[in-house]
């Protein structure tokens, strides 16, 4: 079966790959490009563990085809830190103990970053509704929400 040649921009770098027509962006990232930070928790867009941004928009990479990445800007959790410097959200997740097992963490970080880019001053309720598409089974969300609110405050102060 012939494969599709795709050129895209991934975490700032021009990237080429071949993929099958029915292959999801998530499978391309994980199996062809070695970026396993995005996780498959459901494959149906219900858990958010595979969250990435495409042209700045938050998407479930399990619901998008790899072939659709042509000419787009894809950002994954692997590009959140600036070299050795963690993004404030990453740092606050550690400080607030906002992860237990950590499987949902990459998706939640990508989603939370997307929230703060659109709304630097979310209320707790806005944060909870924005993150309602990201399932976490360990924490009960308490420390996640605290970490997001704290990071938002720090980022507002710094800007």
């Amino acid at each position: 079966m012939s494969q599709i040649h795709v050129t895209t921009r991934l975490n700032g770098d021009e990237t080429e790959f071949l993929c099958d027509a029915q292959e999801t962006l998530l499978d391309v990232l994980r199996n062809r490009l070695g970026l396993t930070g995005a996780k498959e928790g459901c494959g149906t867009g219900d858990c958010g563990a595979c969250s990435v941004t495409v042209d700045g928009r938050l998407v479930c990479s399990c619901l998008m085809l790899g072939a659709e990445a042509v000419g787009r800007e894809i950002e994954t959790v692997e590009n959140m830190a600036d070299g050795e410097t963690l993004h404030p959200l990453q740092r606050k997740f550690l400080e607030h103990a906002a992860l237990q097992c950590g499987i949902c963490t990459p998706g939640i970080l990508v989603a939370a970053k997307s929230l703060l880019e659109q709304n630097p001053s979310p209320t707790e309720e806005e944060a909870r509704y924005w993150l309602a598409g990201n399932l976490c089974r360990c924490t009960g969300y308490d420390k996640i929400i605290r970490a997001v609110m704290d990071a938002a405050e720090e980022m507002r102060r710094a800007s």
Binding site: R30, T36, G37, A38, M80, A97, G102
Partner: peptide, 23 residues
């Protein structure tokens, strides 16, 4: 006390290797 966890950086950067992440 409440120190940072040793596996924390790996888990917030996507580096931690879970069951499906090995080949």
């Amino acid at each position: 006390s409440r120190p940072l966890r040793p596996d924390g950086i790996d888990k917030v950067t996507g580096r931690a290797r879970f069951g499906a992440d090995m080949s």
